[in-house]
Design a protein around this nucleic acid. Sequence first.
DNA 1: CTTTTAAGTAAATATATTTTTACTATTAAC
DNA 2: GTTAATAGTAAAAATATATTTACTTAAAAG
Lengths: 222, 222
Amino acid sequence: MRAKRKRLGAPAGPRAVNIAETREKILKAAIEQFAQKGLTGARIESICAEADVNPRMVYHYYKDKEGLYVAVLEQVLGELRAEELALDVSRSEPFEGLLTMFDFIFGHFAKHPELIRLLSSENLLEGAFLKNSVATPIVASPVVEHIDTLLKRGEATGSVRSGLDALHLYVVMVGLSYFHKSNAHTLSIIWNKSLTSADWQEEHRRLGRDILVTYLRPAPKN
Amino acid sequence: MRAKRKRLGAPAGPRAVNIAETREKILKAAIEQFAQKGLTGARIESICAEADVNPRMVYHYYKDKEGLYVAVLEQVLGELRAEELALDVSRSEPFEGLLTMFDFIFGHFAKHPELIRLLSSENLLEGAFLKNSVATPIVASPVVEHIDTLLKRGEATGSVRSGLDALHLYVVMVGLSYFHKSNAHTLSIIWNKSLTSADWQEEHRRLGRDILVTYLRPAPKN
DNA sequence: CTTTTAAGTAAATATATTTTTACTATTAAC
DNA sequence: GTTAATAGTAAAAATATATTTACTTAAAAG
C-alpha cells in the first residue's frame, strides 16, 4: 500500500490567491452583516450574496455560522490591537500621555462604528463566542499597561493624580468614547435631539476630554 | 336591521382579571426573553412556554412579535420614568442635587440589567421600534430638566462649574453608569479580570462619582 | 335564557434559514 | 499526463419559527 500523497501545507500557486480572496470576501461581508444585524439577525444568504460566493464556501472555510462569527470578532479586535501596538507613549510627559491614550481610544471607536456594534452584540451574548476564541489571548492589548506606566510615572513626578487604577481608568476612557455612540439612537429619540450629528459628537468629545483633564490633575491639598 | 350590540369598553367582571393576567404573563416573559436574546434571538415559543400561554394569545393581544417587542420597550422605559417622577431635587443644594441625580441613574441601571440589555438591543436596531412607539413622548423624562435647573442654580450660587450643557452631562452620567455593565463580558475576557463582581462594580461607582465631584466644582481661577 | 362577543386551544401552514448532499472543475504532485 | 486533492456549484433537505385557521368555551348584554 503506497502512502497517500499529502499536501504539506496551503497551496502556493495561483489557487492560493483564489483561496485567500474567497476567504476575505466572505469575512468582509460577514463583518458588515454581523455588525449590522448581530449573530442571530444576520443571514448566511445575505453574506453570500454580498460576497458573491456560494453558501457552501462559508461552511468550507469557516465550519458554520458561528465559526464565521468568531472569525469576525477576531478580525476586528485584531485590527484594534494592531493600531494599539503602534502607540508609543514611553517618552511622553505622563499627563499628556494619558490624554493621548484617550484621544486614541476615542478616535478608534469614532472611526470604527462596526467595532462598537460587534462588541455590543457580543456582550448581549454574554461574551460566549469571544470566550471560546482561540485568538483571545492575542486580543489583550498593551493599552492598559501603557496607562499603568503613565499613572506611575505621573505619580512620581506629581503631574498626575495618585491612587488611580489603570483598568478602571481605561474603562472610563472607553465608556466616554463608546456609550454616546452605542446608544445614540435611543437617546436621540427620547430627548428629541440628534446626538449622531458631527457637532454633537465633537462637543461631547470635548466634554469627555475636559472631564479627564480636570480629574487627572493631582487633587489640591486641603 | 337591528344595530349590533357593542361592548362599550373593556369587560369589568371576572374576565377582566383573566385578560389582564394573560397580558401581564406574556409581557413579563417577553421582557425576560427579549432582554436575554434580543428581538431576532427571542422565540415566540419560549415566551409562550415561560408565560404558560398559547402562541395564539400573543397575536391576539399584541398583534405580532414586533408589537410585543414594542410593548416591552414601553413597559421598561415607562418604569424608569415612573421612578424618575418620584425624584425631587427642587430643594437640594445644586451640587448635591447633581450627585443625587447620578446616584439615582447609577442605581437604576444597577437594579435593572434588563433595561441595559433592551436598550443595547434597540440601539443595534437603530431605534427602529422605539421610533414608532406611540408612547415615545411619554418616555422623555424630567431628569434632564432637573439637571438643567440644578446647573443654572449652581452657576448662580457659584457651587457648580458654569457653562455645562444638561444633556451632555446627562449622557456622561448615564455612560458612567451603563458602559461598565453593558460591556462587562468582553472587557472581562480581554483583560482577564471579572468586572462583573460586586467589588469591582462598587469600586467603579466610586470612581465615576469621584470624577463627577471633581469636575462639577467650579474651575479654579487662574 | 338566549344571543353575541371575545378569550382560549390545538393544530396546521407558510416561510425562512441553516446545513448537507451529490456533483463538476481546477490545480498540484508525482 | 495521470491521479489525487480540494475549490467551487446547484440544489435539495432538514430544521426552526412566525403566523393563521378552525374550532371550543366562557362571559357579558339585553
